[in-house]
Lab assay of single mutants.
Amino acid sequence: MDVFMKGLSKAKEGVVAAAEKTKQGVAEAAGKTKEGVLYVGSKTKEGVVHGVATVAEKTKEQVTNVGGAVVTGVTAVAQKTVEGAGSIAAATGFVKKDQLGKNEEGAPQEGILEDMPVDPDNEAYEMPSEEGYQDYEPEA
């Protein structure tokens, strides 16, 4: 019985440690998101679009440190934060509304985080759909 109880105690310690790591990862992701939003706020009209992409990228980098179902929630929060940063930029006159959601080359930025393969159960990952990809044929 002692062996059984000791095993359960060790398992509990492992769960607590994993929860603490997840909590730490979420806190880091939130900190990076805040950094990115402050970065966007300090940019001029020309830099705002690039700044919004930076927020998304920093958040995406930190999301990889967070495991399990938390990833889905962090990704949703990050996307809403990026959308909010863009709205703030438009409201303050840093950028025109028609410039939001495009990178410096004018290509749409939507789907940055949505296409990231995420499995809350950590069982399997699927690649994003290939609808947006084109076949590449090298020139002879």
Rank of each mutant, 00 (worst) to 15 (best):
E130L: 11
A19S: 04
Y125N: 10
Q134C: 12
K96C: 15
T64H: 09
P117Q: 06
N122F: 07
S42Q: 06
M5V: 15
S42L: 08
A29Q: 04
G41Q: 12
K23I: 07
A69M: 06
M5G: 01
A140F: 01
K34L: 09
E104W: 12
E137A: 12
V77A: 14
K10Y: 02
K32V: 05
A27L: 04
G132A: 15
P117F: 08
V82R: 02
V70F: 05
L113Y: 06
E35Y: 04
M127Q: 06
G36F: 06
E130G: 14
G111Y: 11
E123L: 15
E139G: 04
V55D: 01
K10H: 04
E61W: 14
G41T: 01
A19D: 00
T75Q: 06
S129N: 03
K58W: 12
G25F: 11
A85K: 04
V15I: 08
K23Q: 11
E13R: 02
G31T: 15
M127F: 12
A90I: 15
M116F: 01
P117H: 10
Y133F: 11
K58Y: 07
E57W: 08
T59C: 05
I88E: 04
Y136E: 02
G73R: 07
E35D: 13
M127A: 08
G51D: 02
E105S: 06
D2C: 03
K10A: 05
V71T: 02
E114V: 10
E137M: 11
V48C: 07
Q109W: 02
E105T: 07
D119L: 06
G106M: 07
V15M: 04
E126T: 12
T72I: 14
S87D: 12
K80Y: 04
E61N: 09
E137N: 07
G68S: 02
K32S: 12
D2E: 01
K80S: 03
E61A: 07
K43C: 08
Y39T: 11
T33R: 02
Q24N: 02
M5Q: 00
Q99R: 06
A89K: 03
V70R: 10
K43M: 14
E130Q: 09
V15P: 00
I88T: 04
H50T: 15
E61M: 10
G67E: 06
T72G: 05
G132K: 07
A69E: 06
E110G: 10
G68V: 07
H50D: 06
G84K: 08
A89V: 12
E61C: 01
V16M: 15
L100P: 03
T75V: 10
V77T: 07
H50N: 06
I88Q: 07
V66R: 07
G7H: 03
K102L: 02
E131A: 09
E35F: 08
V70S: 02
Y136I: 06
K58V: 10
V37S: 01
Q62P: 05
A90H: 14
Q24D: 12
E131K: 09
G25I: 12
A17H: 04
K96P: 10
A30K: 02
G73K: 03
T22M: 15
D119F: 01
E20V: 10
K60A: 15
E57C: 05
D115H: 06
G86W: 09
P117I: 05
G68C: 04
A76N: 07
V77C: 05
M1R: 00
E20I: 07
G106T: 15
M5E: 01
E46N: 11
N103E: 12
G36K: 11
D98C: 05
F4L: 09
P128C: 09
E131C: 08
V70C: 03
K43T: 08
Q99W: 07
V3K: 01
G36Q: 10
S87G: 03
Q24C: 09
A124C: 14
D115M: 11
V82C: 12
S42K: 12
G25M: 11
P138Y: 07
E105F: 12
A90G: 10
E20Y: 11
A56T: 13
A11T: 07
K96H: 15
V82N: 04
G51K: 00
G36I: 11
G36A: 15
A56H: 13
I88N: 05
K45G: 06
F94S: 12
E139D: 13
A29W: 13
A89P: 07
Y39H: 05
V118G: 14
D98F: 14
E61R: 12
V55Y: 04
G73L: 08
V63F: 05
Y125T: 10
M116C: 10
E61T: 06
A89I: 13
G7T: 08
M1G: 00
K58N: 09
V16W: 07
T72W: 02
H50G: 13
D135V: 09
E139F: 15
I88V: 03
A29D: 00
L8W: 07
G84Y: 08
T92I: 04
L8N: 00
V77N: 03
A124N: 10
E126Y: 12
E83K: 15
V15W: 14
L38T: 14
S87F: 03
A78F: 12
E20F: 09
K45P: 06
V77K: 03
D2Y: 04
E126C: 14
T54L: 08
E131S: 12
Y133Q: 14
A76R: 10
N122T: 10
D119W: 07
E105D: 09
E130K: 14
V82D: 06
T92Q: 04
A11H: 00
E126R: 12
G47E: 03
K10V: 14
G7C: 11
P128S: 09
P128L: 12
A53P: 02
E35C: 12
A56G: 08
Q109K: 06
V118E: 11
K97D: 15
D2I: 01
Y125E: 04
E28H: 08
E28P: 01
A53R: 12
M5C: 04
A18G: 02
E57V: 13
P108C: 08
V70L: 12
A140Y: 00
Q99G: 15
G106Q: 05
V77P: 04
D119A: 03
V71F: 12
V66Y: 07
K43L: 10
E104C: 01
E46S: 08
D135F: 09
A140I: 06
G14F: 03
V55Q: 02
P117G: 07
T72C: 05
Y133N: 07
K45V: 13
E20W: 15
M5K: 15
A53E: 07
N122V: 05
Q24F: 03
G101R: 12
E61L: 03
V49C: 08
T59Q: 01
V40D: 00
E137K: 04
G67A: 14
E104G: 14
